[in-house]
């Protein structure tokens, strides 16, 4: 690719215009509404300052709990998806693996399934007495490992995370495979001649050269994790009790109660948080990228 070839800036105007109208402007309007008492029971709109934000940050502690759950979900899914995706990508570019494309397709396929279907399937699989997982464990004399996966406060959150990882890891693998394929083989060959083992090559060659792809998947995972809604909605609906509730399930709840102002305040907090974290993440991780 010719890096010196610069396209004129007006090439971006069309896309920027569409993005601004349909993505950025609604976000700004949402921030405006978050300072009002907008609700479904009145046509009046009153400015109430930071009242909605105070309710979230200082009112009912459940909101902070939801924010904590969202961060926990994001961190765990980002780290685990990236690690498993990376390992799978390494295996799936190995030429000794037979039927690689079939394996790749199978691992990627959950990504294209609707979360509604995934939710129905896993609610059945994870049923404590009739579900496939526990009955299989019982059949293998591993009954002590059987749990109430979605109904226990200790396991529900991790079960949701596990299902989300199962669904999303194939996509991460595909992005990382593309990244791995773009690393010239010569670096590995030279390092091998110099006596570098598999793990040294991974740490000193593969990971630094894969940094642009890792940046992409990290940003995608983090922004997805912070916005998570569907996987939790279909698997536990935020339960048992409130154990798996996250910011977006709370936003949905507030909208269903007709408290739009409070709902938009929560969305606005999330919007700003995602904006900031994405900016610093891209900036930080790009510094670590290696040119070759």
């Amino acid at each position: 690719m010719n890096n010196n070839k610069i396209y004129p800036i007006y090439f971006t105007f069309g896309m920027l215009f569409i993005y601004s109208i349909f993505v950025f402007l609604p976000g700004l309007i949402g921030i405006f509404y978050s300072f009002t008492d907008w609700n479904s029971f009145s046509d009046e709109l009153n400015f109430i300052g930071l009242e909605n934000y105070k309710t979230i940050l200082k009112g009912d502690p459940i909101y902070l709990f939801y924010i904590g759950n969202t961060v926990k979900f994001t961190l765990l899914t980002t780290i685990i998806k990236t690690l498993i995706g990376f390992v799978l990508a390494l295996v799936m570019i190995n030429k000794n693996v037979r039927f690689r494309n079939i394996h790749r397709t199978i691992i990627f396929s959950p990504q294209v399934l609707s979360f509604l279907i995934v939710g129905l399937i896993f609610r059945s699989i994870l049923h404590p007495s009739k579900g496939f997982l526990n009955t299989t464990l019982e059949a293998m004399n591993l009954g002590f490992l059987a749990k109430n996966w979605l109904g226990s406060i200790d396991w529900a959150f991790f079960s949701v995370i596990a299902v989300d990882i199962w669904k999303g890891v194939g996509y991460i693998m595909v992005v990382l495979i593309a990244g791995l394929n773009s690393i010239p083989q010569i670096y590995h060959e030279v390092a091998q001649i110099d006596g570098a083992g598999f793990f040294r090559r991974i740490i000193h060659i593969t990971i630094p050269l894969l940094m642009p792809s890792i940046t992409v998947v990290t940003v995608l995972n983090i922004t997805y994790g912070l916005r998570v809604f569907d996987s939790i909605y279909v698997l536990t609906n935020g339960g048992p009790g409130y154990a798996t509730g996250v910011v977006n399930t709370a936003v949905f709840k507030e909208f269903s109660k007709g408290r739009f102002g409070l709902g938009t305040a929560m969305s606005s907090l999330l919007f700003l948080f995602i904006l900031l974290i994405s900016y610093f993440l891209i900036k930080g991780l790009n510094k670590k990228a290696v040119e070759y």
């Binding site: 406060i153 935020g238 339960g239 048992p240 009790g241 409130y242 154990a243």
Partner: peptide
Amino acid sequence: GQDLEAMYVGAM
């Protein structure tokens, strides 16, 4: 209903 669920699991 959610409150009762939370009570049954010991969270409320």
